[in-house]
Simulated scan of single mutants.
Amino acid sequence: MSWFFECLPRQGYGVLLCLSCLGGGGFATAGEPLFVQRVESAVPTQEALTKAEEQVREHKDVKLREKMAVPPFHKRVEPPLREGETYCQGCHRPQPHGKKLRTRSFLNMHSRYIACETCHFRPEDVRLDYRWFDYAARRPAAPDGGRFRTGRNIDNSALIDGQFKIAPFYHGEPAFALPGTAFAERVAGEWKDGDLPARAQLKARLHTPLSKEGPACAKCHTEDTPLLDLAALGADSRQAAAIRKHVIPQFFDRYKSDDERLKIIDILR
């Protein structure tokens, strides 16, 4: 599958879920993850198809430099972050957020322990539950407050490597697919054999069920009906309070426009 990861577009919406789309092949069944079913029934707009074709045509692979002339000032993570933990990262880099300079670093930190689908697959007509998922063992994981980065187990390698992520579930089953499944292999074949229009159709259908923008920080970092049930994920009262009252989202809420500048000292107010 490595060739597939290298050839798919890295541009487009905030996340590309290469989970399921077979050009109307009808492979999705009721037993497939919810996202797979939604992609199979997706009907992209002409605008989405035009945009996808433009992105596929203009795509250039991103090459990461392993040895930089000037070492970065920030500490490197050893071993380096791996790609391919989720299916999304077969197309997108481990740090997929890059457009918004103000928040991209914080969003990329979240991607280590929150699945892409948690933020970008949010259908309005069904209710999703959010649980820990063990991407190494490929199975749901029990609630565990030790996985929250609130002062405990920050050096936990399972967190750094993205082994455990908060992911969406539907009717008790994962609402997402994983690399290496039969459906994913078929998608890979369609991409490999497809011409420009076929690839654009594939890309557009994959993105149709997704939200380009993820939820605002305040959707989780709030005491007013947060998106995630922190207690169900294993957080104790101290951890839940720290997450809901986190100072960084409060700082971002003070910005009234994209071009507004605040001093770093304002974070202490």
Rank of each mutant, 00 (worst) to 15 (best):
L17F: 15
C18Y: 06
L19W: 11
S20Y: 04
G24T: 04
G26E: 07
F27D: 12
E32Q: 06
R38W: 11
V43Y: 00
P44Y: 10
A48M: 12
V62P: 00
M68Q: 03
E78L: 10
P80W: 01
P80Q: 01
G84N: 12
E85R: 13
T86K: 01
T86I: 04
C88H: 06
G90P: 05
R93M: 14
P96R: 10
L101F: 14
R102Q: 15
T103Y: 10
R104I: 06
R112N: 01
R112K: 13
R112C: 05
T118I: 06
V126H: 03
V126F: 09
D129T: 14
Y135D: 02
R138E: 10
G145L: 01
N153I: 00
S157W: 04
D161F: 01
I166A: 10
Y170G: 00
H171S: 06
G172I: 07
A175N: 03
A175W: 08
A177T: 07
L178I: 05
A182Y: 03
F183H: 09
E185P: 00
G189H: 10
E190H: 15
W191A: 01
K192Y: 13
D193V: 01
G194T: 08
G194C: 01
D195G: 11
D195N: 15
P197G: 05
R199K: 15
L202P: 01
L202E: 01
L202Y: 02
K203A: 08
L210I: 02
S211I: 01
S211Y: 09
A216C: 10
A216K: 11
A216D: 15
A216Y: 08
C217A: 05
A218Q: 12
A218P: 01
K219R: 14
L228W: 13
L228M: 08
D229E: 14
L230R: 08
D236E: 07
R238S: 12
R238D: 15
R238A: 14
Q239M: 08
A240F: 04
A242M: 11
K245D: 07
K245E: 11
H246C: 01
F251P: 03
F252C: 01
R254M: 07
D259F: 08
I264P: 02
I265S: 06
R269K: 06
